[in-house]
């Protein structure tokens, strides 16, 4: 059974995503989690958890930030809150948070998620030995490596099949520093500000960039869209497909989720074809925000071409 996971920007969108076939809602608060479409603080998160469970769906909460001392001291309380709310699982990227979870015997499943750092099966198995029920695989692992990696796994992996791929996290406010230097103070340098950078030799490139309480984040030139390769993903098999709503269009994201649900259902019925994937991909592309393009990221890259 393939699990479709998506991150909503609102309660309303969460409802629509579940109606579109999403099984698991991924959300959290940016104090504890990285790069979320919306920061759900506790009361709102409680409401979301209740909403998701009322639909017999699952909820995963992001606890995957890099924690400094000031925040690690609040992690235990947050995990206990999530356990009391019957959250289905959390993502964790900082081993300190795993230690807190385990030494306090907090009844929560966790998946290991440290962005670009999970790149081989033995790492996944390492975290599995340390209690992880699964792990989020880096976007920089090509298909050829996934083919070698999947048979060696002792726990499942989650793959980004749609959405913005983070490629850099700085602890510095890089945009604020820049605008201060040029004496052009900006009140807002968050995701809604909609800034991009382009490479000096590729002026057509457009890497999204924003600041939040976790620092500065940069994203890949295009959003990941694995619909054209989703048959290969399913056949690997990778059964946990993540759709990131971070930069997605409010309604377009729901349509995209529905397209992946259709692909999933077709595959499970043994009917998914390459032609259907391409048809569904048209839907994905039609529902992209006007300022964002898609590609297949590292999926098709020959590992030998990476130096």
């Amino acid at each position: 059974m393939i699990e479709l996971i998506a991150s909503p920007a609102s309660l309303q969108q969460a409802t629509a995503l579940m109606q579109a076939g999403i099984d698991t809602i991924y959300a959290g608060e940016d104090y504890f989690g990285l790069r979320l479409p919306h920061s759900f603080e506790r009361s709102e998160l409680t409401e979301l958890i209740q909403l998701v469970h009322s639909q017999n769906k699952k909820i995963v909460v992001a606890v995957n930030a890099i924690f400094h001392n000031d925040r690690i001291v609040n992690v235990q309380n947050y995990l206990e809150f999530l356990a009391a709310e019957k959250v289905d699982r959390v993502t964790i990227g900082d081993p300190g948070a795993i230690r807190i979870l385990q030494k306090n015997q907090i009844a929560l499943d966790y998946w290991y998620d440290s962005a670009d750092l999970v790149t081989n099966a033995r790492q996944v198995n390492f975290w599995h030995q340390h209690g992880a029920a699964g792990a989020v695989i880096a976007n920089e692992v090509p298909y050829q490596e996934l083919q070698q990696l999947v048979p060696n796994l002792k726990a499942p992996i989650q793959l980004l099949v749609y959405g913005a791929a983070a490629i850099h996290q700085s602890g510095r406010p890089l945009l604020t520093n820049y605008f201060n230097f040029v004496q052009a103070h900006q009140d807002k340098l968050d995701r809604e500000k909609g800034l991009f950078i382009s490479e000096p030799r590729k002026p057509e490139s457009h890497y999204a960039i924003y600041e939040d309480i976790n620092g500065t984040h940069v994203f890949a030139n295009n959003d990941v869209d694995l619909m054209p390769r989703i048959l290969k993903v399913a056949q690997l098999p990778i059964n946990h497909w993540f759709l990131d709503g971070l930069y997605a269009d409010e309604t377009g994201f729901v349509t995209i989720a529905k397209a992946f649900d259709t692909a999933r259902t077709s595959f499970e019925q043994g009917q998914l074809t390459a032609a259907q994937c391409l048809q569904l991909d048209e839907l994905v592309q039609q529902n992209q925000p006007a300022n964002r393009a898609v590609d297949t990221g590292f999926f098709d890259i020959d590992p030998d071409d990476v130096k």
Binding site: H168, P203, Y207, N221, I301, K307
Partner: peptide
């Protein structure tokens, strides 16, 4: 937590290929 080099030049920053893309000069828009 940086794969700028991977994405801008297929050089894996976490396997010795970092091209110091952070030090490039970018347009911001």
């Amino acid at each position: 937590r940086c794969v700028l080099s991977n994405h801008m030049g297929l050089r894996d920053a976490n396997r010795g290929g970092c091209a110091q893309n952070c030090r490039w000069r970018y347009d911001l828009f």
